[in-house]
Every structure is written in C-alpha cells, then in structure tokens.
C-alpha cells in the first residue's frame, strides 16, 4: 500500500497539490480529474522528480528513508510523452531499462530479461526495428517493455492511451491486466477517459481542481452524476451496464460561472 499524508506541492507560489491524503492499495488504480487537478504532478512527486512536502510511504517504509537507488528499484515512472524518434533499435531501447547494470559488455541476464519483456508484450518481432520506424501504439508497448525489465513493485504511468486508437487502448489494458495477473505489481495510472477507466480500474481516485482528493473507491461507487457536476462541471447521464460498470454519456457543460459557484 502507498500511503500519502499531507502532500503539498507548488509551482512558483501556485499550489498544485494541497495537503493531499490518500491511500492506494488496489492492483490497478486510476487517477482522474479535470485539467490542472495535479494528476501528473502527483505521479512525479511519488517518483521523486518533484520535491513535495508531506509524507509518502510504501508498506510502512517512508520514501524519505529510502536511498535514491532503492526508490528507483521500487517504482518506475512512464512519462506522458513517449521515448521519441531516436535511431535506437527496439531491443536497445528496452535494454536501457537495465541502465543501472549496463557496461560496455552487456551481461547475458540483461539480454535475456530484455527478450522476455519483448515476448511478454508480443513485440519480439520488432526487436531489430528502429524506434522512428514504429507507430505510436508500438512505441507505447516498447516503453512498457522498458519498464517491465526493471522489475518494479509499483508502476506509475501518465496518460498511456493518448494518441492510441480504441483497439490499442483496450489492448493496452489487457496487457496491464496480464502483467498484474502474473506479477505482484501495483499500477497507478493517470487517465482522462472516464469510460475506459471505469471498465478497467479496481479503484478510481478523483482529484479535484486545486489538488485535493474528492473521492476514491470502486468505479460503481465513485462515478455519479453528482461527482461529474462537482468535479468536472458537466451534466451527464450515468448508467450501469450488465457487468456493473458505469457508463457516462455527457450532455453539456454547466459553464464556468456555475462551476465556480459549486466551489464557493
């Protein structure tokens, strides 16, 4: 379990997260919320890219007691923008996940882990292709393979379904669920697509504008007409399908003015 107590962070006097308290304990957790709710910032604070005030701990061990290396071994972070258009092959890119143990001579173990990760995601046929020859969806899979070779306990991903078509989005979650079934890994994922989140998340964490926790729990309990009005400032139908998954059909924005009223 990740426990977060009184986490605060501000960019140039402008608070992004304000005294956030949160426990994350399910295998697949999805953070949602409007723009500027501090979703990405929360991931970066967890990973240690941004210096935040407050307490964060994993299974009772505070992050501040861990060395940088221990923290890097514990979790990995996959940024929103993918690895870019480099002249590196897929195999080399995934191998980079083992950066800590790489030297001029590459160890057999590292090669093996790399190939296994490619096979797990079914992209071993791409091993010798250059990154700039791949489609956006393929590059995402390479990023995930790079994360898997690091064998972390926690994986933080920022908007992984950006620029993916519907099939690729669904496949991505199938892969994530396969990984969870095989290994004891916790995923914390930032998403914008609520319907996709509802279908896949074990737990949904809703952040409010101003970086405060609005609510947290199973999709069925969290996704309500009231939440959508309070947090997103929209009017929407919420129905539930046969699998008890909520479905959202947005109707209209309640406008900036009204939204402000809700906060006051």
């Amino acid at each position: 379990m990740i426990s977060i107590e009184n986490l605060s962070f501000q960019y140039d006097e402008h608070p992004v997260l304000a005294n956030l308290c949160l426990n994350i304990r399910e295998p697949l957790n999805i953070i949602v919320g409007p723009n500027a709710a501090g979703k990405s910032t929360l991931l970066k604070c967890l990973f240690g890219l941004l210096p935040a005030k407050g307490k964060m701990a994993w299974k009772g061990v505070s992050f501040s007691e861990m060395t940088k290396v221990e923290r890097m071994d514990l979790m990995v972070y996959m940024p929103q923008h993918d690895v870019g258009q480099t002249a590196l092959t897929v195999f080399e890119t995934v191998l980079l996940g083992k950066l800590g143990s790489l030297s001029w001579k590459v160890r057999d173990e590292d090669l093996e882990i790399t190939l296994n990760a490619l096979k797990e995601l079914g992209i071993e046929n791409l091993a010798k292709r250059y990154m700039h020859q791949l489609s956006g969806g393929q590059r995402k899979l390479v990023s995930i393979a790079q994360i898997l070779v690091r064998e972390p306990e926690i994986i933080l991903i920022d908007e992984p379904t950006n620029n993916l078509d519907m099939q690729k989005q669904l496949e991505l979650f199938t892969i994530i669920k396969e990984v969870i079934a095989e290994k004891d890994i916790m995923f914390v994922i930032v998403m914008h697509d609520l319907n996709l989140s509802c279908r896949n998340a074990d737990s949904i964490i809703v952040l409010n504008q101003g970086g405060q926790l609005y609510d947290q729990g199973a999709p069925r309990e969290i996704i309500t007409k009231k939440m959508l009005r309070d947090v997103y400032g929209i009017d929407a139908y919420v129905t539930v399908d046969d699998n008890d998954v909520p479905l959202i059909s947005p109707i209209c924005s309640l406008g900036k003015k009204q939204k402000k009223d809700h906060y006051s």
Partner: peptide
C-alpha cells in the same frame, strides 16, 4: 564519454524518459 556511454544513450530518448531511467 565512453565511460558514460549508456547514460548518454538514454539522453537520446527524452529528458523525462532519461530521468525516469535514473539519469
């Protein structure tokens, strides 16, 4: 530079990717 070869290879990805790899 040879000693830092892998780190520099990671720099070719993107700042954020390299950071997340621990560079």
């Amino acid at each position: 530079f040879g000693k830092n070869a892998w780190k520099l290879t990671a720099m070719a990805l993107s700042d954020e990717s390299a950071q997340s790899l621990g560079v």
